[in-house]
Design a protein around this nucleic acid. Structure first.
Length: 796
DNA sequence: CGACTGGCCGAGTTA
DNA sequence: CGGCCAGTCG
């Protein structure tokens, strides 16, 4: 245990030891918050004798949950501890108590497309048909659930706030939508949270059980919690009040999903006795990268003030590259990566981060061309593909025969001659008799249909019955395979079009993944499997493979890479166009930029295209404001020649030559007057405020390269941190190093000491490792303290 | 019943 | 450009 604490710096140790009451840790990017979280849990169990059974840890992704569990598991026994995402936690609580809410424990979880479908149906049943209104209604339903309000509650709230536009429709459709979900024994993502909140709010015994059980609650990524999540957490923490929240307001990027940055900004208001700690020392990135990050985030107004610093190396200068078009942008990235790999880097050292999914395409093409391994995260998720959803629908019916949506989805797929009219008759019958669609099917003989249609319905009913029976005996993987074979799913894609080929391959991949699931979770039920599928996030299947990560910035929250390319830095793309006229939205876009930059450990590139083919049109673009905010740190030009020079410097002439055909493709540019069509290569213009010094050399391998990269690799996966922490142990402590490291307690800092109270640092002496500061305490007078050892908290 | 066509609209991030 | 829908025809 002591070893564990020794690995922490003083600012990390304090929140680990401060185990009781509400504690907020404002943890800057890369400041070792996961280490603090895991250390604290281990400390609770090992030193405080807390049973893992009494601990709840909430993470942002399943992968983070798994990793945290493993990390703590290496230090101590964790059996019985709940480590999960809030959605998984809610699902678990709901399964156990579903009947209190009028559901049964096999309820289906509806994803985005099912949700859209059922809302639309409800909308039409209420005799509305305006597409704009529908869109609005959808948004409001999610908004209401995020606020944990039912239709009536939402009406009251909206009326009180004067937001009466479309309110009647919203309430009417919302009510109907919930009724449909209930008929289907289904919940959507928002329900998982809202219904858990309701369950706890309305059932004292259930709340007492969980609030009594979870004596210690830890929440990671607290900045991205929304109102209903906060309500759940607050209720659960109500009995013991031991809430440990870790977050970074600067990394709040889910405002559009209802995340309330106020939860972190007003933590002390909600928990008046709360203690607040800051982690400002970064172990992940070079000084250069942190300077970029700070330069960007500095433009935001609503944030808690903190400044990241690091003892890490200066690092190499960031490079900005402006391409003529997206192909050139991707090619630049591909060649840069290929060159680094040739020199010994791994593909997995790199990530290409973007604001919108649509930008991945050119990278996929260029990477394929260069033989670069890559994996795309974000965007169309595997389990959202039609062919996969169809198989899942069959599995959902077996698990939850109430799920009429699932039945209707596949009632005529693969084709079995059951048309719209038959389906309509069936639905009407079900509605009239109050039967589920599944049960109505079994009554096919009673329906006013031709005998042909009845026969087909009966055959379909027999198929479903057979699947249900098989489901009793078969494993998830076997059942899935049985479904595919029995329904002729593959034969439905028998032709040799590219599309069918892909779909068949996806079906096989799906079956393989089901095998894998069974292998890893031998005792899991069908329900467990469907849970996991519904709640899995994209980055959950990031693995140890050697590939370049192509991802949206949202999906790499919490991850880190040796080298990051932030691409598509154009007005309207990053920041995205709809954010530009709203100050609040712009701040979130800026935080997104901040998150992107702080993913990088050693090198960072910023790229953009001067023209981009997007949404079916090629259009000239303007440089992103974020690039302008970084202009003091970048070498940047709006003209081509620098690209050539860069090529020369970077790869040597031979390389540049092999790419000599480049000029040919300039024909692209010529359709846009100012984009380099007219007079060949000019000279870089300096009038745009950017320093266009010849410091492209700074990025040349001889001077900077990825020297540190190879070093990091030696220690494997989490090399960055392992390396940093190791160095930390042998080198100087946080405070007092004449460099940025002195930032811990510089003269003038307001600090708080548990015994002496508040005071101001008036003097600092000593050298690395043994800095003595003099603090003038208001009540206790002047004290000399060791910067390394004294239990000081920096005040603002 | 179902395959096919043409027109219209929207275009972002995700558990 | 692509998804969705309504309309048409075999």
């Amino acid at each position: 245990m002591n070893e564990l604490l020794e690995k922490l710096n003083p600012e990390q140790v304090r929140p680990v030891l401060d185990t009781e009451g509400a504690v907020l840790v404002l943890a800057g990017a890369g400041s070792g918050k996961t280490r603090v979280l895991t250390s604290r849990i281990a400390y609770l169990i090992e030193e405080k004798g807390v049973s893992p059974y009494n601990i709840l840890a909430i993470t942002f992704t399943n992968k983070a949950a798994k990793e945290m569990q493993e990390r703590i598991g290496r230090m101590t026994d964790v059996s019985g501890m709940w480590v999960s995402t809030i959605h998984s936690m809610c699902t678990r609580i709901l399964r156990k108590n579903a009947e209190r809410l009028g559901f049964n424990d096999k309820f289906s979880i509806y994803g985005e497309s099912e949700r859209a479908g059922v809302i639309k149906k409800s909308f039409q049943e209420c005799d509305y048909d305006d597409e704009k209104l529908l869109k609005n209604v959808k948004w409001h339903i999610s908004n209401a659930k995020t606020l944990a309000l039912d239709p009536d509650g939402y009406a009251v709230r909206q009326n009180a706030e004067g937001n009466t536009k479309d309110l009647d429709a919203v309430v009417q459709v919302y009510r109907r939508y919930q009724a449909h979900l209930r008929e289907n024994n289904a919940m959507d993502f928002d329900d998982l949270l809202m219904l858990t909140a309701r369950l706890l709010r309305e059932n004292e015994d259930i709340l007492a059980y969980y609030a009594g059980k979870f004596r210690y609650i830890l929440v990671d990524e607290f900045q991205d919690t929304n109102a209903v999540q906060f309500e759940i957490i607050r209720m659960l923490a109500g009995a013991h009040k031991n809430l440990f929240a870790v977050g970074d307001d600067d990394q709040s990027i889910y405002g559009w999903r209802g995340a309330d940055i106020g939860n972190i900004l007003h933590f002390e208001r909600n928990f008046p006795d709360a203690k607040v700690y800051k982690l400002e020392q970064n172990y992940r990135s070079t000084k250069t990268i942190l300077a970029l990050a700070n330069a960007v985030i500095h433009h935001n107004k609503s944030r808690k003030d903190k400044t990241l610093w690091t003892e890490n190396a200066e690092g190499s200068r960031a490079v900005a590259f402006e391409a003529a078009d997206e192909t050139e942008e991707a090619a630049f990235t591909a060649r840069t990566i290929a060159e680094f790999v040739r020199r010994g880097a791994k593909y997995s050292d790199f990530a290409v981060l973007m604001r919108i999914n649509a930008l991945t395409r050119s990278y996929e093409q260029e990477f394929a061309k260069y033989g670069i391994n890559f994996k795309v995260f974000g965007g169309f998720r595997f389990f959202e593909r039609k062919e996969i959803k169809d198989i899942l629908a069959y599995l959902r019916i077996v698990n939850n025969p109430f799920d009429g949506e699932a039945v209707l989805r596949i009632i005529n797929f693969p084709r079995r001659g059951i048309g719209d009219k038959t389906v309509q008759t069936l639905e009407e019958y079900a509605a009239q008799t109050g039967l589920t669609v599944y049960d109505a099917l079994l009554d096919a003989d009673e329906l006013p249909l031709t005998s042909g249609a009845k026969t087909k319905l009966k055959a379909f009913a027999a198929l479903l019955k057979d699947l249900v029976i098989q489901g009793q005996a078969l494993s998830v993987a076997e059942l899935a395979r049985y479904v595919v074979e029995k329904t002729g799913m593959r034969e439905a894609y028998a032709d040799d079009s590219d599309d069918s080929l892909t779909k068949r391959a996806n079906i096989d991949e799906f079956l393989n993944s089901a095998d894998e699931f069974v292998r890893l979770n031998p005792s899991a039920s069908l329900e467990d499997y469907l849970n996991q599928v519904a709640l899995s996030s994209d980055t959950d299947d990031a693995d140890e493979g050697d590939y370049v990560t192509l991802a949206t910035i949202h999906s790499v929250k919490g991850l880190e890479f040796k080298c990051v390319f932030v691409c598509g830095l154009e007005d309207g793309t990053m920041p995205v166009s709809r954010a530009q006229d709203d100050e609040k939205d712009m701040e979130e876009e800026r935080r997104l930029m901040y998150v992107a930059i702080t993913r990088a450990e050693e090198k960072i590139y910023f790229t953009r295209s001067r023209s981009r083919y997007l949404y079916g049109r090629r259009e000239p673009t303007a440089r992103s404001v974020f690039l302008n905010e970084l202009k003091d740190f970048l070498s940047l030009s709006d003209e081509r020649p620098l690209y050539k020079r860069y090529e020369g410097d970077f790869y040597g002439d031979s390389y540049g030559k092999s790419y000599g055909s480049y000029g040919d493709r300039r024909s692209y540019g010529s359709s846009f007057g100012r984009y380099g069509g007219s007079g060949g290569y000019g000279f870089p213009s300096d009038d745009d405020g950017f320093r266009t010094v010849g410091s492209f050399r700074a990025s040349s391998p001889q001077n900077a390269g990825m020297g540190g990269m190879k070093k990091g690799q030696e220690s494997g996966g989490s090399a960055g941190n392992a390396y940093s922490f190791a160095r930390k142990l042998t080198a100087a402590p946080a405070a007092g190093q004449g460099t940025a490291g002195a930032g811990n307690y510089p003269v003038g800092t307001r600090v708080s000491h548990p015994r002496f109270g508040e005071g101001t640092v008036v003097h600092s002496r000593g050298s690395a490792g043994n800095v003595i500061i003099t603090v003038a305490f208001e009540k206790a007078g002047n004290k000399e303290l060791s910067a390394r050892l004294a239990p000081l908290t920096v005040l603002r």
